[in-house]
Amino acid sequence: MCRDHFLRGYGDLLLAAAIFIVAAVVFRPLLDVIALSMTFAVVAMPLKRRLNRRFGPPLAAMATTITAFALLLILGLFVAGILYQNIDYFRDTVARLASVFGEIQAGGFEFLPFIQPETIWRGLDAGLAGGLEYLAAQVFAVPGFFLRAATFFLVLYLALLFGERVYAEIRQRLPDRLDYAVGEISARSVDTLYAIYIVEVIVAVITFFIAIPFFYFMGYDRTLFFAFITGVFQLVPIIGPSFIMVLFSLLAVLEGDIIRAVLLIAVGYPVVAAFPDAYIRPVLMGGHTGISPVILWIGIFGGLYVMGIFGFVFGPLILTWVITVYRILIEGREPVGR
Rank of each mutant, 00 (worst) to 15 (best):
H288L: 13
R260M: 15
F312R: 02
P282M: 13
F301S: 07
G256M: 11
Y279C: 03
P276H: 02
F310P: 09
P270M: 05
Y269C: 07
G311S: 01
F243I: 09
G299N: 08
I259A: 15
G315Y: 05
L284S: 13
A266R: 00
V246F: 13
F310W: 14
F243Q: 00
F312C: 05
I244M: 12
V306A: 12
F312V: 15
G299L: 01
I318R: 03
I298A: 09
Y305T: 06
D277V: 08
E255N: 10
G287L: 13
S249Q: 10
F275C: 06
Y279G: 11
G290L: 10
G290R: 12
M245C: 12
G299P: 08
R260L: 14
V294P: 05
L254R: 03
R281G: 03
L247K: 01
M285S: 12
I300N: 02
L296S: 08
W297H: 03
L296T: 13
S249D: 03
L317E: 00
L247F: 07
I280W: 12
H288Q: 05
G299A: 06
I295L: 14
G287I: 08
P282L: 06
A273N: 10
G290M: 13
A278V: 15
L317R: 04
G315N: 09
H288P: 14
V262K: 02
V283G: 04
V272P: 15
M307C: 07
L317P: 00
I291E: 04
L284A: 11
V246E: 15
F312E: 01
G308P: 07
A252D: 12
D277Y: 09
V246M: 14
